[in-house]
Design a protein around this nucleic acid. Structure first.
Lengths: 126, 126
DNA sequence: CTTGACCTTGACGTCGGCGTCAAGGTTTAC
DNA sequence: GTAAACCTTGACGCCGACGTCAAGGTCAAG
């Protein structure tokens, strides 16, 4: 299939696909006229990338998964590097949550001092 | 005081101060040679901005607080617009936390499928 | 007089993941 | 033959909060 069909089937833009190629995540063979040609394996790669991005992975985070899939494994998360990324992302998410919860309580206490009653009520001011 | 001293006392760069001025958050009177001149009220403004940014506010979020302080109020959070921003930021933080918690559980379950036991243990692979 | 520490404006670079436009070439349908 | 729908590469734009460099002006100390 060509880039337009792959984009439609994967739910991404053609621009995104070219960008992934530029970042070395996917490759395409070229037909005689220079058009990119993809197969079903490429579709699986892109779907994998998008599902990882949907949970906050960057393209760099997704790279080991892509390489894992390209090495012939049926799933991208069955390689040590992928598992390592999973563990690192879990730690990063935990840290983000901790920071956000801390911020939340700081903001809430500031609001409480500025406007007692505002925190509990859903309406306007005191 | 001039911009260097304000920067030191507020713990920011001079570049940041010029940027805040460019964004209309702070103003400076100019001395005869063109140098910016600040007073203690400006220091309080910058400190307020930084403390808000420390809990995840953008400069736009900080604007109502700055205007509140400049209107003569002793504290930046004693104005309706400031309170409104507090409430909005609380809602945004709550939403971010919700999204992160959802992501965390998705990643954790993916990891559990990829590598049973990895989630609980702190060490390497199965 | 010169060094050095300060100040000025202007403008480009950073990060990620593309969007969007330009200026074309290719192929298919009618 | 020509319009439509594809495709190509290249390159700039965006967001936020500045960092960093350039090319200069100012001022006090030695």
């Amino acid at each position: 299939m060509r880039i337009g069909e792959l984009a439609r089937r994967a739910g991404v833009s053609t621009r995104a696909l070219r960008y992934y190629e530029q970042q070395g995540l996917i490759e395409a063979r070229r037909s005689a006229n220079g058009y990119r040609e993809y197969d079903e394996a490429d579709l699986r790669l892109v779907v994998e990338i998008r599902s990882l991005m949907a949970v906050g992975f960057t393209l760099e985070d997704a790279r080991p998964f892509v390489e894992c899939l390209r090495s012939g494994r049926p799933s991208g998360h069955a390689c040590p590097d992928s598992v390592a990324v999973y563990r690192r992302k879990l730690a990063e998410i935990d840290e983000e949550i901790r920071a956000l919860v801390a911020r939340r309580s700081e903001v809430a206490s500031q609001l409480a001092r500025a406007c007692p009653g505002c925190v509990l009520s859903k309406g306007g001011e005191p």
